[in-house]
């Protein structure tokens, strides 16, 4: 029964997945652009973000229309509300990939004050957390949601590590301050990717349990 209802719900989830895949690709491209100081690739990431924003709006419209026309209740309603909330988190994560790409563009003809190690790790971790968070939502998998949320601690530790290193570089030589500040901001932005992935995990649990759980 309600074939169209089930198909539309599934199709909205597929769009959310598509949006997450696009953002994850952008994160990895931004990482590559940073590591290889590739300004052209960085510009590509910045331009691709428009697709992410467009998808966010179209998914939001579809969710609203679904609520208006299909009147979902109980777990169907919770899942659709979770989608609505999750797309804004995914969009923000996409913005952080753009931040990384912008820094990559700016620094593409500068020599790095240190080899980039932890920042690329943060990008990989952010992409994985995003993927797992969205999978937990689409596959209705609360244990994956909880496990993914725990990885935010690794993200915080990487951020602290970056801060310590850059601080000591700035103390060593004031000429490092300009680039170090940019990298510090970037690290802070990337750390926020983890928080948004955790939000998505919370929405998964909300959809499953019907109540909010602190993660």
């Amino acid at each position: 029964m309600r074939e169209h209802f089930a198909q539309e719900l599934e199709s909205i989830h597929q769009d959310v997945l598509r949006m997450a895949v696009l953002v994850e690709e952008n994160i990895l491209k931004a990482r590559k652009a940073l590591l290889e100081q590739d300004a052209k690739l960085a510009k590509e990431v910045i331009a691709d973000d428009q697709k992410v924003n467009t998808l966010e709006l179209s998914i939001t419209d579809r969710c609203v229309l679904f609520i208006a026309t299909e009147q979902p209740v109980a777990s169907d309603l919770r899942r659709i509300v979770a989608c609505l909330k999750a797309v804004s988190d995914i969009e923000r994560i996409g913005d952080y990939a753009v931040h990384a790409a912008k820094r990559a563009k700016e620094l593409s003809d500068e020599k790095y004050i240190k080899p980039l190690i932890d920042i690329p790790k943060m990008l990989v971790l952010g992409g994985e957390m995003l993927r797992d968070a969205v999978n937990s939502m689409i596959n209705v998998d609360p244990s994956l949601a909880r496990k993914t949320a725990q990885r935010d601690e690794d993200m915080d530790n990487l951020n602290k590590q970056v801060y310590r290193e850059l601080l000591s570089l700035m103390l060593e030589d004031k000429d490092n301050i300009k680039q170090a500040t940019k990298l510090l901001f970037l690290s802070r932005f990337l750390e926020r990717m983890g928080d948004h992935a955790v939000n998505i995990c919370s929405w998964t649990l909300y959809a499953v349990q019907g109540e909010h759980e602190d993660l």
């Binding site: 029964m1 309600r2 209802f5 979902p72 209740v73 109980a74 777990s75 169907d76 309603l77 919770r78 349990q209 019907g210 109540e211």
Partner: peptide, 18 residues
């Protein structure tokens, strides 16, 4: 009942599955 029913039969009915 409409947001978080405890009984799966209730959920199936109110969401139009039967």
């Amino acid at each position: 009942i409409f947001f978080n029913p405890k009984n799966p039969k209730t959920e199936a009915y109110i969401s139009g599955r039967f």
